[in-house]
Every structure is written in structure tokens, then in C-alpha cells.
Design a protein around this nucleic acid. Sequence first.
RNA 1: GGGCCCGUAGCCUAGUGGAUAGGGCAUCUGCCUUCUAAGCAGAGGGUCGCCGGUUCGAAUCCGGCCGGGCCCGCCA
Length: 574
Amino acid sequence: MADFKELIAGALEQALDGKLKKEEISTLLEVPPTPGMGDYAFPCFKLAGMFKKKPNKIAFELAEKIFLPDGIEGMNPNGPYLNFFAAKDLVAQDTINEIIKQGDKFGKHEFGKGQKIMVEYSGPNSNKPLHLGHLRNTIIGMATANIFAAVGMKVTKANIVNDRGIHICKSMLAYKLFGNGATPESTKEKPDHFVGDYYIMFNQMVKEKPELEKQAYEMLQQWEKGDKETKKLWKQMTGWAIKGFKETYKEFGSKFDEWFFESEYYNKAKTVLKIGEEKGVFKKNKDGALVAELESYGLPDKTVLRADGTSIYITNDLALTEYKFKHFKLNESIWVVGNEQDLYFRQLFKIFHLLGFKWAKNCRHLSHGMVTLPEGKLKSREGKVVDADDIIKELEDLATEEIKKRDSKIDTKELKVRSRAIGLAAIKFHMLKVAVQKDIMFNPKESISFEGETGPYIQYAHARAKSILAKAGKVKIKKFGFERLIGPEEQKLLKLLANYPDAVKKSLEQLSPHIICQSLIEIAEAFNTFYHKHKVLKAGTEEIKMERIALVQATAQVLKNGLKLLDIEAIEKM
RNA sequence: GGGCCCGUAGCCUAGUGGAUAGGGCAUCUGCCUUCUAAGCAGAGGGUCGCCGGUUCGAAUCCGGCCGGGCCCGCCA
């Protein structure tokens, strides 16, 4: 692929007698705000300082001195900028040939080869079903994992189930008292919802009978002691919950390579705790609890083990993280967790550092904003949530209606497949297109649409492209000169397509899937504009038709590749 | 009280030092006998929270303030 930046930078280096190096010039090059101004811009502000001249004058003088290389067909000093025009046919030729040659690999990179990384996300509590917050977390995790894989890294997608603790004991207690031996089968309820209902029931009952709180804690102690009956009930209820989660994950399209369970790691931290005590990182406080003293590092102290010797949440991470790095030989481990845990992770990572683990610097918290409702925070204990299963179903139903409007005779099976693809695209894209650190206010009635900057909009552009290609039949894309794709609509689309691999790279560097969303929106927009302005199959000449088909094929390919990274299906028909 | 995050048209949002702040929703005007109107073309709508500073240049950097969220448990 001709690197236009490289060409321009080379010519500028020469014109500047090497006063600026090619590499430096290359990083300075920008894209002008409107296409009419040029394809690349060299800002002369830096040089103004060096030469003690006005940037406008420098731009003008450079324009007189520079020799344009092949592939750059024009240049224009514009105020403090020197703007360059790439040869349009070359832009078309290079971009299309490259995309068609690379196919599914277009946009991927190899600089991450040899790196092993774990992405941990979703992290449900086994006492209640997944809600909208989990869906945001899960799709961020999925997309992030895909992006790491796209730059060549070996990624392990991990889920940790918080299946131990006071929360599940509350569900268990309510079930024990009021369940009367009911089961998800007997009530025909989705098993995680069945468990969650008892959690809500507990929280209602405890208002009238505060002693239930104490009873739940006693149950936790029984559990930690290994009481057979308690364990049996626990196994049954967490089993139900997990079975329910797996149904939701399947529906949502997320797969995990590893499942961790807090119940299997919380009591394996003895070694780490002992090392910490010996090193003086952990100290017993006056009540007998084990505490990491972090105040001298500007962080609050963190208890790592209760006075009665029972575990808290961090005990689990202390044991599990070392296992992760050793067993999976990781270079890096990422926790995708909401920003309410920011302090927790700063404490956790500081403790790893103090314990002297050499992998401590390779731990990262991908923090993301919360999902709130118009009436405030999601609160599971009050049942005030947007349930994950409900919202998925709702969007699939909406998609079904939309499809039926357009095709009343559609085959039932096809309808179901397509509704699911479109409904999920809407919700996933909605969650991914916003910068991760921002909170999302979710209004169930208004938030998710299928129009404008949405997942279905991208899918629609893709389906339109595929429809043209299907009608075109088998076409051999020969080595065209592509001198017929030089109009503004074609050129805009081509530049966005060529820019897609950079968007992938940038989204990795900034751990920001929304950069890929933005790139796809722009491509879909440019394609739709092109689509309306120009006929493909009924183009004036066979040559124009062939070249446009090639452009359509390239566009479909890039949209498909991008959607794949976001875990959204690129469907052929809508 | 302290810490972290956020503040860009009625609503949502991109843009972290450079050209006229870029989109979407909603509103208004056009466009389906022409490859899918989940679309396209166009219009109106902005003190980039406020004040000060740094800079040739600030939505972007620094300081202060205001507003919102989250956190500061031997909860998770």
C-alpha cells in the first residue's frame, strides 16, 4: 500500500534540508477539516519557532521549494498549513486491492504477537440474575478481548462468579424459610430469576424481622465451617443461578474460556497472606484482623482477612491473581469492572506491588461508568433493575416488528435469527459507542433505537452492500486502474476505509472500543451517501460498474470486520 | 471532609494544544414506477459549566469555584 504520509514526509524532509526528520514530520501531518482543502496537511507552527518566521510565510516558501513525489498530485499553501492532495486513482487502487487481498484480516495487526493477556469481565453474583450493568460490562469485555486478539495477542476470556458470601446466604435463608421445596422446574421459572426472587424476598422480610440479618450471617459461618446441609443448599442454589447465567450469556453471544469461582479461591490465600505478614505488608490490628497498611501511599488501609479468620472479597483476588499469572503465563491481566471499584483496584495493585510480585505492574483495571435509570441507580435488592433477559427479549421483539413491516412473508426461522442479530446489535452498539468512562443513563422507552448512529444502521449499510454484490453475481475483480472512483463520494469512502486499521490500533492503545464504533458509523454514512448518489449495477459503462462493485465489496468487508470486533453480526439481509 | 470520574444546542455524543467545534435523536422542508426509505439531501438550534492563568493559538493544559456520579466497610 502506498504510504502517502511517508511520501509527503520524505519530500518535506528534503525541502527542509533535513532540519526535521521524516519520522517527526510524519507525526505532525494531519487531515484537513474539509476534503476540498486536501488529503494531508502539514502545520508550520513548529517551524515558525525554529525559523523565527510567520507560519504562513513558511508554508508559502515550502510550497515553492518542495518537489512532489509520484503519488502526490497537488499541493496548496493555506494559511499556516501546507496541504497535499493524494493521487485519487492511486488512493482507490491501493485501498481496494489491499482490502480485497487481506479480506477478514484487513484491520488486524501483528504487533501484539507473542503476548498473552487475560480479560476478566462480567463477574456475576450468584444470588440474582444479570442486569443491564452486567451487559455493559460484558460487551466491553468481549470487544476488548476481540481487539487484543486483532493485534495478535493470545487472549483468555475469563469470568469470575462471586458465588460465596453473605449475598447468596440471604437468598438461601429466604428459600429455606419460605421456599417449601419449590424448584425452577416446578415453578417454570428461569433458574437465576428463581434465586433472585428469594433475594428480593429476604430484603423485604428483613425490614420487619431484623433478626434475619443475623441469621444470614450465621449461615455464612456455617458455610465457611463446611456444614453439610448448608453446603448442599448452597450448591443447589448457586447451581441454579449459574445455569441461568449461562442461558443469558448464550443468548447474548458471549463465551468464556475460563470460569473462576470465588468459592474455590477464597481460602487459598494462606500462602500469600503469610508472605505478606512476614514482609510486614500485612499487620494484625488491635481486633485481630489482618490489614494492609497503605496510608503512607496515600490510600486507605485495606483489611485482607477478618478477625475471625473468614475471608472477604479481596482474599479471593489475592489468591486467584497469582494463579492466573503462573498458570496462564500471562504478560498482562485486565479486570473490566465498573468505576465504583476504582479505589479497590488501586489498593489491590498496590498490595501486589508491596508483596514484590514482578507481575504487579502488568495488572490493569479497565474502569467503566455506571448504567443508571431515570429514577437513579440500579438496585438489585429492591428489584429496581433493568433485567438483562428482559431487555434482550424486548429488543428482539422490536426488531421482529420492524422486519415484519418490511417483509410480511418472511420465514419464521429466518425471522428469529434476524431479529436476534438486529436486537443484539442495537443494545451492544448502544453500550459501546460511548466512551467507557462515561455513565450511561438508560431510559428503557427512549434509549435504544434502530435509526441514526446505531448497530442496525451499520448492519443495514452492510446488508445493502451485500445485496448489490449478490445481484452482481460472480464478478472477477481484475486489476483495475480505479481511475473511475475519483468523485468526492467515492474518495471520502475510500479514505475512511483506508483509515480503519488505524482506528483499530487507536482503540487498542486507548482501550476504547468506541473508536471502532465511530469509524464504522463514518464508513456506513459515506457508503449510504455514495449509494444514493451513484448506481452500481446500472452504471454507465462496464468499467465503471466493475470498479464500483469492487468498492462495494471492499466496504462490505470492512464493515463486517469491524462489526466482528464489536461482537455484532454482519447480516446479509435486513 | 478527602479521593477518582463526568459537565460540549431541548436530549445523547465525538473531538485531550491548531483551520469554520463534528455527528445522532427530536423539530421543520424535500426525496420511494430507479441496486433495501432501518436510508438520503437540506434548514434551524452552541457563552464547549463558571472565573482566572499558561500559550502565537485552549473544548483540550494549570489553578480556583459550581453542578452531577462513584468511592472512602472486618460488604461485594
